[in-house]
Design a protein around this nucleic acid. Structure first.
Length: 168
DNA sequence: AAGTTGGCCAACCGCCTGCGT
DNA sequence: TACGCAGGCGGTTGGCCAACT
């Protein structure tokens, strides 16, 4: 028997969120806090899957999120961290607390990846030419150190509000 | 003005991990 | 120890919109 779906697909709404749904979700989380996502659709009456609720909150509704143009500093940091960590967007996002992993991933795929390719085509070496830390290296470093910051071998993160990456 | 193309980004999908039992 | 479930993550998709022909 295969693994059951995360939620009942029948009667679950998909697609863009409406302002009314956003209000329901935000007011519920303001009252109860994020977490226990499975209970959110039931308690709010939202016809959404729990995953969808969590995604909407973390990527769009969560307070403190900055949207729009990335600064030069953010761009350089993303390039540096991507070269260091590879496509571990959640780990990269922990260094940019105002940005979501989805935002960073989208920005990388649409802007930076092309930009770097262009630069490399022009013979300009980029930081992405470095080898990212392999999964094995990551795991080994995790055994040697206890703090999340030390795993990265880069500057300490000013505020890590998200969970540490998996396989850490 | 109408049709086509390409970029952007919100959201979905499926896999993995950690935790509780 | 094994199993089931919820949450987390990265890859991918699809719809919208602006630019172009």
């Amino acid at each position: 028997m295969g693994r059951p779906p995360c939620c009942d697909k029948v009667g679950v709404k998909k697609g863009p969120w409406t302002p009314e749904e956003d209000i329901l979700l935000v007011s519920y989380i303001q009252d109860h806090g994020p977490g226990n996502w499975r209970a959110v659709p039931t308690n709010t009456g939202l016809l959404r899957c729990s995953k969808s609720c969590r995604l909407r909150w973390t990527n769009y509704l969560r307070p403190g999120i900055r949207r729009g143009n990335f600064t030069d500093h953010e761009e350089k940091l993303i390039i540096h961290l991507q070269a260091l960590l590879g496509n571990r967007w959640a780990a990269i996002a922990s260094y940019l607390p105002e940005r979501t992993d989805n935002d960073i991933k989208n920005y990388w795929n649409t802007h930076l990846h092309k930009k770097l390719k262009k630069l490399e085509a022009n013979g300009v070496s980029s930081s992405s030419s470095h080898q990212p830390i392999s999964k094995g290296q990551w795991e080994r470093s995790s055994k040697l150190t206890s703090t999340w910051q030390s795993k990265l071998y880069v500057m300490p993160c000013p505020s890590i509000s998200r969970t540490v990456p998996r396989r850490s």
